[in-house]
Structures are given as C-alpha cells and as structure tokens.
C-alpha cells in the first residue's frame, strides 16, 4: 500500500504567530481511495493539516507528499469544502459549480468551447446530491443544507483525486447532517476518491472513515490511529450498534486525554 497523501515529521508555524508551532512532528499517511478522518481538540492544527496537504502552507520542517510529488505549490488535484459554503452570491448555483473549471487547466482553456458539456456535468453532480433542477437558483435562495451540498459539488466538479473536507457539516442540524453523511459515503464509494475529513463529530468520523487519526492539543501531532473495520456499505442503522458505540467511546477517551 503506497501512500497517496503523506506527511512526514512535519512542523509548521504561522508567520507572525507567537508561541508553540501549530503542528509539530506530525506524521500521517493516507492511501489512495482511502477515507481518512482527523479528530482532535479545537485549535490543534486540523485546518493547518489541510492547508499543508493542499499546498496552501509550507512546513519549516518535514515533507509533505501528494500523489508521489513533494508539495511545493498548491496541489491542483484537490477539491475543498469548509464549514461555511462560501458560494458566490452573484452567481447562480450552476455558475458557482463551474467556477473551479474557470481556473484549473485544462478546463480553463476549454471553458468557452465545452461550456454546455460542463454545465451538463454540473447538473448531473447536483442531481447526485439531491439538487436536480436547482442550478438556476441563486445560493441565497437555497437552505443551509442545500448550499452545503452545492459547495460539495463545487469541490468535486473538476474531478479531483483528493477531497478535503474541513468540518463541512458543522453548521447543519442533526438530520441534514446524517443525510449528507450518506451523500458523501456514496460519492466516495462511486468515485474511488481519496477523502480527508476533519470533524468534531466522532460519530461522523466512525460512520464515514476507514481510518481515524486523533491529534494532540497544540502543537498538533497524531497521538492515536484507529482503523474502522465496520463492513461497507454502511447504513445509518450501524450507528446504533454496540461495536460502533464502543469505537466512539474509545476515541472520546483519546480526545479527553489530549485536551488535558
């Protein structure tokens, strides 16, 4: 098993920030097609990990490798989604989805010529997250959950090999959140995409991930790693079973320890 995303003994401090580095001696490997989740106390460097893996920040020590290449500039094979949907209010939902294609090569060059084809692709993607025929609406005409779905689609439109999700469902109600868990689960299953998910919700992590990394308090590093062997495809019912609950408890214990 070769690693698709690999951080080796990485330390990073933000320019101008005082005190301990954001992450220190962080080591972690994610295999191609794997679904990894990262949990840890607030401020431990989870978002920093995302920025390091996508080439938005560069460590002062250690190496970051993605798809066999050392990261020295933004990696263009990644799609990102955050807690806030950050859709552009002056564009329709469909045009919001097309935004990445206006930036990433080779699509950027072909935008004019292949626009109908791209729009078709965007519409199919919207359909796959339950937003069929909503592309013509503006983001502010959609509910929070719908906006978050659209934001997911935007992260996927350029067919990235790597999907980075930073607390994507943090702002949603419990039911919508579980619905979107299933959306992500199906996207991962059908596209064989590598996913790294940062979350505060341990149930979310256990339900979705193949492997969970627990990070220590700042400066963040991995203090525990837990493989989730629950069989796939997983149904929401699995979250009520004893083995599931046991894993959640075990992880909780790690976090409680990390916070001290």
């Amino acid at each position: 098993m070769t690693a698709f995303v690999s951080l080796e003994n990485v330390s990073h401090a933000y320019a101008g920030a005082e005190g301990a580095p954001a992450v220190e001696g962080l080591t972690l490997d994610v295999a191609e097609g794997e679904f990894a989740a990262v949990v840890g106390p607030s401020g431990c460097g989870k978002s920093t990990l995302m920025k390091l893996a996508t080439g938005l920040q560069f460590p002062f020590k250690g190496t970051v490798t993605v798809a066999g290449e050392r990261v020295s500039k933004p990696v263009k094979i990644a799609g990102m989604a955050f807690q806030a949907p950050t859709l552009l209010p002056w564009r329709t939902t469909l045009d919001n989805l097309l935004l990445p294609l206006e930036i990433v090569e080779p699509y950027r060059r072909e935008m004019r010529r292949r626009k109908p084809e791209f729009a078709e692709r965007a519409n199919n993607l919207l359909g796959s997250v339950g937003l069929r025929d909503q592309g013509g609406k503006f983001p502010w005409e959609l509910s929070g959950g719908m906006q978050q779905r659209a934001s997911l689609c935007r992260a996927l439109i350029h067919e990235p090999k790597l999907l980075m999700l930073d607390e994507p469902f943090g702002a949603l109600d419990a039911f919508t959140r579980e619905e979107l868990w299933c959306v992500i689960r199906d996207l991962h299953a059908s596209r064989k995409i590598t996913v790294i998910l940062v979350t505060h919700d341990l149930r979310e992590a256990v339900f979705l991930a193949d492997r969970i990394f627990v990070m220590s308090a700042r400066p963040g590093r991995v203090i525990a790693e837990r493989r989730i062997e629950l069989p796939r495809p997983r149904d929401l019912e699995v979250t009520f079973t004893t083995p599931f609950q046991d894993i959640v408890h075990e992880l909780r214990a790690h976090i409680v320890k990390a916070r001290q």
Binding site: T54, P74, K76, A81, P100, I103, V104, R154
Partner: peptide, 8 residues
C-alpha cells in the same frame, strides 16, 4: 483557499 488550492 478554495481558489488558491486550484492554482488560482
């Protein structure tokens, strides 16, 4: 960040 990660 979303846009920069795409190489914008």
């Amino acid at each position: 960040d979303v846009l920069k990660a795409l190489g914008a």
